[in-house]
Design a protein around this nucleic acid. Structure first.
Length: 922
RNA sequence: GGGCGGCUAGCUCAGUUGGUUAGAGCGCCUGCCUUACAAGCAGGAAGUCGGGGGUUCGAGUCCCUCGCUGCCCACCA
């Protein structure tokens, strides 16, 4: 029996089933369009930021997916051609590290295994464990197109990577050279600037004397003191630099120094770059181990001496320190200098130390032969795309952050000394030593024809391939006439939903690469592609971070990580989704609190029980021959003017809510949208409408059958529309209940394929809202009065009501509602409230409960006094403002009028309150 | 060293271009097992909008300043 819902809402009982159903039925697949371009149907498509293949789903993912899924389901229900593409990233370093650890635990190493065997091993690992996140996403109901799932190392995506590399190379935008890069000695690879995280570090500033030597090569007895935070790098020193205008050292210009420990002659050079204030004003120059020194070395034609190997141990260039690990070498160097009396001092010094983003090892700036992208031509386009408004950021401030970074961008080091990743399509010739870059696997040198070539062992930065995704997932570079439907329909994608942490890593790179490569792809009508049409996405929505209940960042080390799957098991996916949505206001981090989730599980339960109430009545109706025509559902209910007040009211509220939700979602205000629905369903539909409609649901003999049927129709219609309104937020619960509404014969395979409620502007403006408001305020006042004077909950009591003539009809027509909801036995209209009765006064009416009051006079007086003081203040404030000629002259008329009205109402109320106080003899 | 946020009820947060008496959820207090729901119903208390100054008829909202707090960027040895 579809109508037979269990008494309590149990999410676990329904969610697995629907999650599996959605995937099995391929409900969210969006095949390549056959009907041409996007004109035939507006499309809305986004690319899922591919999680690392090594990853587990965390709260941040769930948040991101919830927001995306809400948007996707919403757009889908608005009839658009919706596509959400899932995939995973091969995550070079992360994955290699993980598998390496596994290999080591088995007593081997990747070096022992060899490159091919190791890579095979990684692929095997990926086959077994690589789908964790995606299967978790399936369980959480993300409405992605599983038929289009990709992996960044898939063949077709690899083709795009190679094409992009070769093209940039041909355009002169990729070069190879020896520069200072960030080297991770643990990962044994270069990493980009972005992959270095800086940390304040309490260290020292060592001051070392470098003896000055004369023409004869002998010490003059004088020395120049340099300051350094990394004394071990002195082994690679090739000069000492001073500021040309530094008078302390003028006499040393042109002189030479003896490099301690290495006994090497090095020159003193002058350069404006040197700061006279820092340290001693003399800086040792180590071009192979510091970017500034490297630049100095370039300017002054100095050699570079790399004193370390790939693992940051001192190499043969470091003389007797060869073999020492860098920090051991540091100790040794300092000790030896001290022994030789060359250590002038040690000062405490706080400096920023760079760590490898992946493994936290201290990064070694190191001279190394790497591949770089000459980035400026790409960044120019990427800057223009945002400045010209082709890409819109939400929140807007991220556009500033983005531009600031983009305008100060450095060339991008794209080579990595890893095994797992896209291998660089470059072949080095051992005969002519030139490099061949090729789309096809090269067999001979393009320069000398030699076959003694070997492919570069380096792979590309992971972000090089993910940066290409917006073009590559739609088939680039193979966009031929017969093979471009996807590209035409879906590029540029509509939106990117992501976190700010990958703004530069990924978002910026996609913009650069998307604009650069798609520009060559003509439009469907063969016209050239404009910059506006070459962007990878038209909008970027940057979501906030999910923190724990104490606003702490979740981290494994702190042990405060909330596992979404655990929470979901406890409260249900829908409740967790609703929690995230309701807290998601752009730009504000989410302090995830299970108390909120508990509340939204209660909300889910509320919906569940409303459904049970509905079904109970439908079944009772069926027994007396009243049936609901489900074919009439699926639209926006409309109440005609003859319908009962509560029907017209709830329909108007439904339209108003639909309007709010649509607008909120258009502005990424998930919180406003969720709150509007919550408020409508719980505060309006359940608390008021259901209670009132119970009066009309009379199935007894002799009851007004037409009225019952009409009411039931509205009830079911509004409820069904509410489900559709809720569906993007709570897809599981609404799916279950929606199928039940249709008694197992739904008009579509899923509620996700129905239409989202759209407000009719006329329907949301209704006098019913005003009338209902009056009734509600009367009912609330009576309830409060009852409470104040201690009327038993169950007792029905008479009330006296003094109300303006023009409002009387509303009350009279709906007296049954007042009687039921406020437990009133008799409603007496009176010209004035009888003396001695407990009363409440509002601007519109006075009401009293006819009951022997058991009230605390003192408490009542206190309350009255408080209220009187408040109203006196209101009147005084209003009078003061109204008495101000500047106000009446300058403020707009409706403000002045409004204030006058407000003042009069306050005065009216005040009079009544004073009278009350009198009668109480306070 | 630059840049960007935040500070509103006990907690977590809303508050649209300045406009009439600043809101929500949770928590708290009181009373109810009223047959959809105690994961519920009803009523209630609670805020000098971080401090100071300014603009304005009018400021939570705009400007200045100070404080606290968080984040991002940056090659100072």
């Amino acid at each position: 029996m579809p109508h037979d819902l269990p008494k309590a809402y149990d999410p676990t009982a329904i969610e697995d089933h629907w999650a599996e159903y959605w995937v099995r039925e391929k409900l969210f697949s969006q095949p390549t369009p056959k009907d041409g371009g996007p004109e035939s149907q507006p499309s809305f498509d986004i690319l899922l930021p591919p999680p690392n293949v090594t990853g587990n789903l965390h709260m941040g993912h769930m948040f991101e997916h919830t927001e995306s899924d809400i948007l996707m389901r919403w757009h889908r229900m608005r009839g658009e051609r919706v596509l959400w593409i899932p995939g995973t990233d091969h995550a070079g370093i992360a994955t290699q590290m993980l598998v390496e650890r596994q290999v080591v635990s088995e007593g081997s190493t990747r070096q022992q295994m060899g490159r091919d065997a190791f890579i095979k091993r990684v692929w095997e690992w990926r086959e077994h464990y690589g789908g964790t996140i995606l299967s978790q996403m399936k369980r959480l109901g993300a409405s992605v197109d599983w038929d289009r799932e990709y992996f960044t190392m898939d063949e077709r995506l690899s083709v795009a990577v190679r094409e992009a590399f070769v093209k940039l190379y041909e355009q002169g935008l990729i070069y190879r050279g020896a520069y200072i890069v960030n080297w991770c000695p643990r990962c044994q690879t270069a990493i980009s600037d972005l992959e270095v995280v800086y940390d304040e570090h309490k260290g020292h500033l060592w001051e070392i004397r470098y003896p000055v030597i004369g023409e004869d090569g002998k010490d003059t007895g004088e020395s120049l003191t340099v300051a350094t935070t990394r004394p071990e790098t002195m082994l690679g020193d090739v000069a000492v630099a001073i500021h040309p205008d530094d008078e302390r050292y003028t006499h040393l210009h042109g002189k030479k120094l003896r490099l301690p420990l290495m006994d090497r002659e090095i020159p003193i050079i002058t350069d404006d770059w040197v700061s006279r204030e820092f340290g001693t004003g003399a800086v040792k120059v180590t071009p192979a181990h510091d970017p500034n020194d490297f630049a100095l070395g370039q300017r002054h034609n100095l050699p570079s001496i790399d004193v370390m190997d790939d693992t940051a141990h001192i190499n043969e260039q470091g003389g007797k320190y060869k073999g020492f690990e860098r920090f051991v070498a540091r100790k040794e160097v300092v000790a030896d200098l001290e022994a030789q009396g060359l250590l002038a001092g040690i000062k405490d010094h706080v400096n920023n130390v760079g760590h490898c983003d992946r493994c936290k090892t201290i990064v070694e700036p190191r001279l190394s032969l790497q591949w770089f992208v000459k980035i400026q031509p790409l960044s120019d386009k990427a800057i223009a795309a945002v400045k010209e408004g082709h890409i819109k950021f939400t929140p807007e401030m991220y556009a500033k952050t983005y531009l600031n970074w983009m305008e100060n961008i450095h060339d991008w080091c794209i080579s990595r000394q890893l095994w797992w990743g896209h291998r660089i399509p470059a072949w080095h010739c051992s005969v002519c030593h030139k490099t061949t870059v090729s789309r096809e696997d090269a067999t001979k040198c393009a320069h000398c024809g030699s076959e003694k070539i070997e492919q570069s062992t380096d792979v590309l930065d992971t972000w090089f391939s993910s940066g290409l995704l917006p073009v590559s997932v739609f088939g680039w570079p193979n966009i031929a006439v017969e093979n471009r439907a996807d590209f035409d329909a879906f590029y540029p994608t509509s939106l990117l939903v992501t976190g700010f942490d990958i703004l530069f890593f990924w978002v910026a790179r996609m913009i650069m690469m998307g604009c650069w490569f798609s520009l060559d792809v003509p439009m469907a009508d063969e016209s050239p592609r404009s910059l506006a049409e070459s962007v990878p996405f038209r909008e970027v929505y940057i979501h906030a971070l999910v923190r724990d209940a104490n606003r702490e960042k979740m981290s494994k080390t702190k042990g405060n990580v909330i596992d979404p799957i655990e929470i979901v098991k406890q409260y249900g996916t829908d409740a967790v989704r609703f929690t995230l949505a309701s807290m998601a206001s752009p730009g504000t981090d989410i302090a995830f609190n299970v108390a909120r989730t508990e509340g939204y599980r209660a909300f889910a339960n509320k919906i569940w029980n409303a459904a049970r109430f509905l079904f109970m009545n439908i079944d009772r109706a069926a027994e007396v021959g009243i049936t609901i025509d489900t074919a009439a559902l699926g639209t926006m209910p409309i109440a005609d003017s003859g319908a009962p007040l509560e029907s017209r009211w709830i329909v108007a509220e439904l339209h108003a809510t639909a309007d709010k939700v649509n607008e909120a979602l258009a502005n990424y205000r998930f919180d406003d949208a969720a709150n509007a629905i919550y408020q409508f369903f719980w505060g309006g539909f359940c608390d008021w409408y259901l209670e009132i409609v119970k009066l009309s649901l009379d199935f007894n003999e002799g009851a007004d059958k037409t009225r019952t049927e009409l009411s039931l129709k509205t009830l079911v219609g509004v409820f069904e529309a509410s489900l559709r309104l809720l569906s993007p937020f709570m897809p599981f619960l609404t799916e279950e209940v929606w199928h039940a509404v249709y008694d197992g014969k739904p008009p579509a395979k899923s509620i996700a394929l129905t239409r989202f409620p759209q407000a009719d502007n006329n329907a949301k403006q209704s006098d019913a809202i005003k009338k209902m408001g009056l009734l509600q305020s009367l009912i609330v006042e009576v309830r409060a009065l009852r409470k104040e004077i201690g009327v038993e909950e169950k007792a029905a009591v008479p009330i006296e009501l003094r109300i303006d003539e023009d409002l009387k009809a509303t009350i009279r027509d709906s007296h049954a509602i007042v009687e039921r909801l406020a437990r009133v036995s008799e409603l007496r209209f009176v010209p004035r409230i009888s003396a001695g009765l407990a009363r409440h006064a509002t601007a519109q009416f006075d009401v009293a409960v006819v009951y022997e009051r058991k009230i605390d006079v003192a408490a009542e007086c206190e309350k009255l006094n408080k209220e009187i003081a408040k109203q006196e203040k209101n009147v005084a404030n209003a009078d003061r403002q109204l008495g101000n000629p500047a106000f009446t002259a300058k403020a707009p008329a409706h403000i002045v009028e409004g204030l006058k009205k407000q003042r009069d109402e306050a005065q009216h109320l005040l009079d009544k309150l004073r009278a009350d106080r009198e009668s109480l003899a306070c």
